[in-house]
Write a protein that binds this DNA or RNA. Structure first.
Lengths: 354, 354
DNA sequence: CAATGCCTTTGGAACGCTCAAATCAAGCTC
DNA sequence: GAGCTTGATTTGAGCGTTCCAAAGGCATTG
């Protein structure tokens, strides 16, 4: 038998600290210390108390702890109603990672429904006032996002998934290095022998989009490849992308790096339209590794965000901020990884670099 | 000015019930009553107290309430790490709906990370013991799922998203009527003039899959159409589906109803392979309305689950169960809706039913 | 030997709220 | 006018935990 009887009292009420104390022949405070400051106890006392705790299946009541310590061990997260459909599919992976990392640190994620429009502050105030949430994780951070300043002003720890693209940087964040992702995509294509590598992105002005464009540009320059006339801008939907990518194909691009999987799909359509085959005639790389990417035909090479790592970093940064509210802000940029699939096949000639 | 100054005390500590009481010139209990049992107070007293509450921006502390009442107003939800990729994309919509419905009822969703394997009970025990969670919402309910029996045994309110496909029915659940969805798909196709309508599903034995197959079969029979040789089974991935659907096409099916969007996509591939165009030569209907469905070309007609409604129902059932633990179990089957897109176009001849 | 220090343990109070029961003021009945 | 019901409010206690201060044991000191 492992150790605990794990019999959670079918009888009256839960096991309390006082019950454990009585059974162990010590004061309640000693039991509390056994849990929170074990080094205060004499080793033999500690062992005895721990034994009784296990035996009785005692679990401290969070409500009582929160009341006394004003710390709920809860992290607030405002869940939004599938903003555009682009980041949505990956959000539940992030949420799971977040939850897992929090659990490991003894925290839990408390959800609240964010209204569809711009992120309002009501929910945050509510969680703060009533639940004594210890901190927040922000996602879908937008330009002109009021949340960071609002939270910082009242000294509430928070961490953003996503950097601040405009204005003064406030607080900690973890983000994915989009430029690095598109850079890697270009590297991959160059290694495959491509030189006419185009970029299909969103209109300038979106932080994320500009970041991804920058990585492409940087890599192209590094290889001495021209970027002029090799870049197009499109709205976020497939149809817009299909049209926007045409000039790039007309100009003889042999590969397209897209700012999202959806845009990449538009590129697929444009190619089919001219009886070209994605992957064979023109290589295509997407971004996000959405569920769609893997089931397209040919399957889409794409840049995957390390969502599990981001979730972990968010929790780490948040805990650090809580431990030391005065510490200088920390920002973490995580490397995405290129997922190579059939849309960027190895060239016919078997000629790997020496 | 609306009503509340909404100034959440930049000064020392939050506003407590006692402070409100003092300011309003009543006892703490009266303030409590003003919130929880307003009909106990004289109207004028009530108004006065409420005025002070608003003015001071008072919010009851959940921790204290939980401690006293043994009810945390928290609903536990175990979030799983993207099981297969099929149901995953829709889960965040469900979670948002759930959160929203809970918020409206004064509850919140408390997340915990479910380990990847079969649903373990550890997380549930933890939430129960330490957080005094009032109830649970179960999703990804599986055959041989131990959770329902476990929770029922200790009298914990819960509701499942998904019915129990095997064994004795335990507790309340809300689910989507898959049969009704495929039935509607057949209706739609029949109205379009199709008669050779095939079904592409998963191997028998999965509750969800058999349900969806049954709807197709039922509708076919109703219209006196043959089902023999018109049904194929496939694993859940695109490639398996592509192969499995071939016999159906060979047999001259003019339309395919698939048990999932992924299977429908496999059907697309099979059609392209034989130089047929989905939607034009053979109509295809998917199931789930995954993000992929809308961006395929041609866009995929599919059966959409009313996830928002399911979330709402889950909360409603759970609250009802909490209010009356002894009530007979309630089961709700919600109607999915057919989303008609380009894969099931109207026939060339303009001949709507008279 | 009393005084000093450290290590371990304890007692009392408090966190903010709600339950149960008590109090007080009226209104009615006979 | 004593007795009973009804309505509105207050009183006292306690939910389970941790904070703070203080007490006890024991060894080391002046």
């Amino acid at each position: 038998m492992p150790r605990s009887t794990s019999s959670p009292s079918p009888k009256g009420g839960p096991v309390t600290l006082a019950m454990v104390a009585r059974r162990a022949g010590v004061s309640p405070q000693t039991v509390s210390n056994a849990i929170n400051s074990p080094d205060l106890l004499r080793p033999e006392t500690l062992e005895r108390v721990r034994g009784v705790i296990d035996e009785m299946g005692y679990r401290p009541s969070r409500a009582a702890q929160s009341l006394r310590t004003r710390s709920s061990k809860l992290i607030g997260y405002g869940i939004q109603p599938t903003p555009g459909g682009d980041t949505a599919p990956v959000m539940d992976r992030f949420l799971h990672a977040l939850s897992q990392a929090a659990d490991a640190a003894g925290y839990r994620i408390l959800l609240f429904a964010c209204p569809p429009g711009g992120p309002s502050l009501d929910g945050y105030e509510e969680l703060l006032g009533r639940h004594d949430v210890d901190g927040f994780v922000l996602s879908n951070t937008a330009r002109q996002d009021p949340r960071q300043a609002w939270l910082a002003k009242r000294g509430v720890p928070f961490v953003g998934f996503g950097r601040m693209w405009s204005g003064r940087q406030i607080g900690d964040w973890a983000d994915v290095d989009g430029a690095s992702g598109t850079d890697a995509a270009v590297e991959h294509l160059v290694a495959l022998g491509h030189r006419g590598i185009a970029f299909l992105g969103w209109p300038r002005g979106s932080g994320v989009g500009d970041d991804r464009a920058a990585g492409w540009q940087r890599a192209m320059r590094r290889h001495g490849l021209p970027t002029r006339g090799r870049r197009a801008e499109s709205a976020g939907d497939v149809e817009a992308a299909r049209i926007a990518v045409k000039p790039l194909l007309d100009a003889g691009a042999t590969a397209v790096v897209a700012a999202s999987d959806t845009l990449a799909l538009g590129c697929y359509h444009a190619l089919r339209e001219r009886n070209a085959t994605p992957g064979r005639d023109v290589a295509v790389v997407g971004f996000d590794d959405s569920p769609t990417a893997g089931i397209l035909s040919p399957s889409l090479s794409t840049v995957a965000q390390p969502l599990e790592a981001v979730g972990g970093e968010c929790v780490r940064l948040l805990l650090a901020r809580m431990a030391n509210p005065a510490a200088p802000p920390e920002r973490v940029l995580l490397e995405p990884s290129l997922v190579v699939r059939d849309s960027t096949p190895a060239p016919d000639s078997a000629a790997p670099a020496p």
